[in-house]
Nucleic acid binder design. Sequence first.
RNA 1: GGCGCUUUCGUCUAGCGGCUAGGACACAUGCCUCUCACGCAUGGAACACGGGUUCGAUUCCCGUAGGCGCUACCA
Length: 509
Amino acid sequence: MTEKKVRVRFAPSPTGPLHIGGVRTALYNYLFARQHGGDFIFRIEDTDSNRFVPGAEEYIIESFQWLGLAFDEGVGVGGDHGPYRQSERRDIYKKYVKQLLENGKAYMAFDTPEELEAKRGEIANFQYDATTRMQMRNSLSLSKEEVDALLASGHQYVVRFLIEPGVEVDVHDIIRGEVVINSSVLDDKVLYKSADELPTYHLANIVDDHLMEVTHVIRGEEWLPSAPLHVLLYRAFGWEDTMPTFAHLPLLLKPEGNGKLSKRDGDRLGFPVFPLEWHDPKTGDISSGYREKDYLPEAVINFLALLGWNPGNDQEKMTLDEMIQLFDLSRCSKAGARFDYKKLVWFNHEYILSKSDEDIAHLFEPMLRERGINEEFERIVKVVSLMKGRVNFVHELWDTCCYFFQAPESYDEKSLKKWWKEPAVSNTYVSELCDFIENAPVFAGAEIEPLIMEWIASKEWPVGKVMNAFRVTLVGAAVGPHIFELTDFIGKEETLRRARRALDVLPEA
RNA sequence: GGCGCUUUCGUCUAGCGGCUAGGACACAUGCCUCUCACGCAUGGAACACGGGUUCGAUUCCCGUAGGCGCUACCA
């Protein structure tokens, strides 16, 4: 076999925001293409004019930009196999439909939707196939004159694929092995509609994959039942020798309950199902997105990569480059995977940890500005270095460390209950500690800490009680970093100001 | 209903005839410690069921059951 350049495609329908399952499918295609030095093509499958949603295509493109997955060819990128929008390829499809018709591989059907509906009511489990097609109105059952008359009168029609019954169709799938199905269970699929002069998915898909020289079709399992039909189409065109290899990926399932992950689940269960926030142009509904919810794209990618695939060792955290090295379609699992977003949260935490303090500070900075905090960047970096390990999301940084930037306005009930339960005593501790700090020759934490510890010991006071009372006055609660990290950051003046203000406000007895 | 795919801890999964069935998330406990976290350590937790094949099945085959998908002039 000659070594053909690997070419794969991601071909969404612009009917709304990109589903997270679609993102995973695209990711696997991307990894496969990169690993083999091949091309990753972006095609828009807009053959259903009724379902077109404005903005969807732009949304999809922006999503991949955010995720960091770049296409080599396709809509918005260009290439030698265009156009890449199926609605712009009408003439190409027409030519191939004609070819099928002329070769007797397909036929015209004039049945109206109402007639089909009636037939379905009449016959249980009605299927348009070898057993029924002669009872219908089509170019097989009608005389040439009748057909010509219908066409002349402008009657709309569809072109159906003529499925020969009783053929064992073998689909080779990288993930599932051989899948054999008898053609008798297939129906004469509609390939083309005269009404809008557009093909349906099945025809457009085969023609485009052939013309675009796609070598591997990596898609969701929902396509497995129609894979035999696709094989038959390649055969009908005489393209079986260059037919792409199939790989049907397991589906993404809801975290709980039954069924596959759907558009509705996300906001109901508390996590997004779309990469970016989506504003529905018709209903005005807003669906949350990972980007807006503060997930790092690296975390989303890493998590998604492991939903249905694993590198065969215990490694879980991987860069995109490592994934490209390790990816292997034959190591994909076959059963559907529940979408466990708790693990995604953990990945986000891990990626916050592994990113530089500067990178995280850049993300955190606008959130501070929004709150009117105009701290200099270097100081934000300092806070991030101290606190980033404690959060799962960058936005949680504010709640976790706002006291670095502003004095507490109130004092946490529980903390007071524990560390200020004898107000007179706590008052004495903090008040005397303030005096000690004020008169100490040094202030830097590293230098003053031993002095303070020594002093507390000389007083025979309990260290924990003194330090936590002190902490509550500075932070407003019994939380936070090592206390001298905080005093270093806010400085001597602010330290004493906060502590003394608390002495004024907090109960003394 | 028909057709197809699928089945290891709660979840994601490793395993490709012989293992104390491994890892990760989550959970629990402990350690660290001026607090809260982080981190670290430890622990509980799984081969759907029934037949075969075999000296031996989580692993191979066949059923059953469950899960999932498809069954449009949607993709």
